[in-house]
């Protein structure tokens, strides 16, 4: 009965009423500016156009990943820790819809942070480096957008993982901690398993989140992996994560404190 749009509006209000969200936004802005200042005045990288700087700034998406994991890992679990879940679930809105509104809010937050990163890096670059020099074609604006697109795949998958842990264990710290741990250690884990010649490594989530080798004509991580394979694995993981979140959120009793 209550429309999904209004539920999303509620989740947005809850995200942006918190002080920490504004700290996160400020950190993103400040890190772009300081990256610009550092590469111009301290390191002196010889950048002479805003586009190469924007390309450089795409690596700052890892900050976006960490912040969205915090939001995604907290969005369901915090309702349980605050006890507000008892007021939230007794409304004329099904649990499935409430969960969906929360997930959409996480996606919106990811979008907000990445678009912000893109715009701030453009203007920072413009102010510090101008648009004087030549730009190599692999740092063109479409190439930058492509990089953002590929990064978004990683961010969305990691955030969905955190979202699932949040809904399953109703604990923000576990959701945030475990997701960030997996994100940071996944490369090592994949490498170790690869060196042990385990063929099933290719089914591991974080072996598939980086789609760039396929698009830039590089070598895939393991033989037998292709763009189609990785996309299929990612879609399968996404469905699994959302289905588990949905099942545990809609079916489990809210008892005790």
């Amino acid at each position: 009965m209550s429309s999904l749009v209004r539920l999303v509006q509620n989740e947005q209000m809850k995200i942006y009423s918190r002080f920490r969200t504004w700290v996160m936004l400020a950190i993103v802005v400040l890190s772009v500016i300081s990256a610009g200042v550092l590469s111009r005045f301290v390191i002196g990288m010889g950048i002479s156009h805003t586009l190469p700087f924007m390309y450089l700034a795409t690596s700052l998406t890892s900050i976006v990943t960490i912040f969205t994991v915090i939001i995604a890992g907290d969005i369901v679990a915090s309702e349980f820790t605050w006890g507000t879940i008892k007021l939230l679930l007794i409304r004329p809105a099904s649990r499935g819809k409430i969960l969906c509104a929360k997930y959409i809010s996480v996606l919106l937050f990811i979008l907000t942070l990445t678009v912000m990163l893109l715009i701030i890096s453009y203007f920072t670059g413009l102010l510090i480096f101008g648009v004087g020099g030549a730009v190599s074609p692999d740092m063109s604006f479409p190439a930058i957008l492509k990089t953002y697109g590929l990064k978004l795949v990683q961010i969305v998958m990691t955030a969905t993982l955190a979202f699932m842990i949040s809904a399953a264990f109703r604990s923000s710290s576990l959701a945030i901690g475990l997701s960030i741990f997996l994100m940071l250690s996944s490369n090592t884990i994949v490498l170790v398993l690869m060196s042990l010649k385990k063929t099933w490594v290719k089914y591991f989530l974080f072996a598939n989140t980086d789609l760039s080798p396929y698009l830039s004509g590089g070598k895939p991580l393991l033989p037998g992996m292709s763009l189609g394979f990785s996309v299929t694995v990612l879609v399968a993981y996404w469905i699994l994560f959302y289905a588990v979140s949905w099942l545990l959120f809609t079916k489990r009793d809210v008892a005790g404190n």
């Binding site: 209000m13 809850k14 605050w82 507000t84 008892k86």
Partner: peptide
Amino acid sequence: AIVENPEFYGFM
């Protein structure tokens, strides 16, 4: 309904 003590979003 109020189930046990009413808990609200303290930051709002």
